[in-house]
Write a protein that binds this DNA or RNA. Structure first.
Lengths: 145, 145
DNA sequence: TATGAGATCAAGAATTATTCTAAAACAAAA
DNA sequence: TTTTGTTTTAGAATAATTCTTGATCTCATA
């Protein structure tokens, strides 16, 4: 039984940052469920596998992984930011009632269509859709009957 | 000399929320410079005109104005959220070096092109472009020479 | 296989943004 | 004018994140 997948090791080293056990656990915590956890959720998952890891280290690792382009940081709401290991261009739908986040496919052609001042260096585009998820929209409708 | 513009009063009352001096000052703090201030920047501007206003009230007012649809709240970065009085659909460019935010026009047709699960109720779309503004891109290039 | 430089980690303190609480002031309706 | 509900205020409380410091680890090189 392997403690880590070779792919997660490869992913980290191939992105130009040093491979450490902590980074591996943090990255795997993000890969194991492809949702959009907050830093403290990542902390809890990583701690389950490596009890000695600290929250500060989780922040360090998430920053390093984000900086290297291996994961994305998303700002859906006031409060905590969330992390996403899906590198395919996509947007996020955020339910303002239950807080669930899910990926939304985007047309890559859109990415190229922005107009902004000459000399601007675009690094990436973050698209957040806000509203009610199907479950919450349903609940709200029925409660009005 | 008028303390407040009739337009800001109209804007507030026409959005279904009660007009109060504090809400007027907060709204005008946002309108006077059409930038993207944080809550504490709004607080400082409002305080200049109404020294008795409190930060908690500024948060209350910003929330009320956002809720009523009169202003938009944007999450550009980890940390403080920002507020924007531009109601025309647009995106934001955020410079990760100097923190400046500016509006970016978007093609309204894009807004309609998202695909997401049946039953989802979309309320609004937030588009954030991240990178270096022309000034910071310039500086970075020259410093590498 | 030692060693030195720099990167990373851990723990907890510190900071920052935001929210909460409770009491007073206010506004609108009855 | 009383009632009822909303808004404001100040300050306390909370939550997320960052900072600080010393210890530990890694890698390149001797």
């Amino acid at each position: 039984m392997k403690a880590h997948s070779a792919t997660s090791e490869d992913a980290i080293t191939s992105h130009g940052i040093r491979l450490t056990p902590q980074r591996r656990y943090v990255y795997e915590a993000l890969m194991e469920k492809r949702d959009h956890p907050t830093a403290s959720e990542v902390f809890m998952r990583a701690k389950a596998r490596m009890p000695s890891i600290s929250l500060a280290t989780v922040y360090n690792c998430l920053d390093a992984l984000t900086e290297s382009g291996l994961i994305r940081q998303v700002y859906c709401e006031r409060g905590s930011s969330r992390y996403c290991p899906n590198l395919v261009p996509h947007g996020h739908f955020f339910c303002k009632t239950c807080g669930v986040v899910f990926d939304v496919p985007i047309d890559p052609a859109q990415e190229a269509s922005w107009e902004f001042p000459e000399g601007t260096q675009l690094e990436h585009v973050e698209i957040t859709l806000r509203g009610l998820c199907p479950a919450c929209a349903q609940k709200q409708t029925t409660s009005l009957l």
